[in-house]
């Protein structure tokens, strides 16, 4: 029963990890850059929702109406000011630039909010309901439903809209996409915006379910990267599967063995996956045609 509970917890928490990792993998798929600042963006989203809740008593879920567009704009601005000016060695340079952006953001958050751990504590944060002997915390269920809705929205955007088509075209072949008249710069900027907005939503839930400070981004980004590598770079479905798998593995191992080995077990499995499938679960060919 404990194991079943752990599996359910894993699936529920995996939902919002999929949001955060989805933003990372989408950005990589379109621009081939790793948004190393995704971890701190999640923490920024959490802090924004925290500030709106504690100062203006806006419900965290409602605060997304403000934070997601705000963070979308941040993403677009970061693209135009930081990524676009890079002329050569985009891959390595963007990685370092995004690290630098993340570090500066972290320093600012550290100075503004201090390094005391905080948590968004709404009245319903400790509520839960039970089915049989299984416990379902309200907050995780809400978060899971929200993640499902948002991910469905992203899928709709990707596969049912004109923008999604140009985004996927830019993913498949940026040069050809430019040739048929797609403005890949704007597609990239919007994609970074969407990725960062997904981080804002994920961050809100992260702030509801964990106590956090600016340094939480370290643990977050390594988890998100592990998820994205596991699922395959650029694959949204891969990120989804990998998030749920990671959390389920972690929770089950924590229950049957020891909590300290939960995360490590996932990493060991990740190594095994990489040995068999270096491009990840649903990754595209490791070497793309030039």
């Amino acid at each position: 029963m404990l194991v079943l509970q752990a599996i359910i917890d894993g699936i529920l928490v995996g939902g919002f990890y999929a949001l955060m990792a989805g933003g990372l993998t989408l950005v990589f798929g379109v621009m081939e850059i790793v948004n190393f600042a995704q971890g701190i963006m999640v923490v920024l989203g959490a802090y924004l929702s925290y500030a709106l809740f504690s100062h203006l008593s806006i419900d965290p879920f409602l605060s997304l109406v403000i934070t997601m567009p705000g963070m979308f704009l941040i993403g677009v601005a970061v693209y135009w000011s930081m990524i676009k000016p890079i002329k050569q060695d985009r891959v390595i340079m963007s990685l370092l630039v995004m690290f630098a952006v993340g570090t500066i953001a972290e320093g600012i958050l550290d100075l503004v909010f201090t390094s005391n751990l905080v948590q968004i504590s709404t009245p319903y944060v400790n509520n839960s309901f039970t089915i049989g002997s299984l416990i379902f915390p309200d907050i995780y269920v809400y978060a899971f439903l929200m993640s499902v809705v948002l991910l469905a929205g992203v899928y709709y955007l990707l596969y049912r809209t004109r923008f999604g088509r140009s985004l996927r075209a830019s993913m498949q072949n940026p040069t050809a996409a430019r040739l048929v008249g797609i403005n890949t710069d704007w597609v990239s900027a919007y994609t970074l915006g969407i990725g960062v907005a997904m981080a804002a939503a994920g961050g809100m839930v992260f702030g509801l379910t964990n106590s956090f400070d600016a340094a939480s981004s370290y643990d977050l980004i390594s988890r998100l990267l592990a998820i994205v590598i596991f699922g395959g770079f650029g694959s949204l479905s891969g990120a989804l599967i990998a998030s749920v798998l990671m959390l389920v593995i972690q929770d089950v191992v924590a229950v049957v063995w020891s909590p300290t080995w939960g995360q490590t077990t996932f990493y060991v499995i990740l190594i095994l996956i990489l040995l068999v499938r270096p491009q990840g679960l649903l990754g595209r060919k490791a070497v793309r045609a030039q």
Binding site: I92, A226, I271, P278, A286
Partner: peptide, 22 residues
């Protein structure tokens, strides 16, 4: 072995954090 440069970078980074966890 079969990974592109940027994949390599990410996997190496995760290997590094993995070491810390282990």
């Amino acid at each position: 072995r079969r990974l592109r440069g940027d994949y390599q970078a990410m996997v190496l980074l995760v290997v590094s954090t993995m070491g810390t966890y282990l």
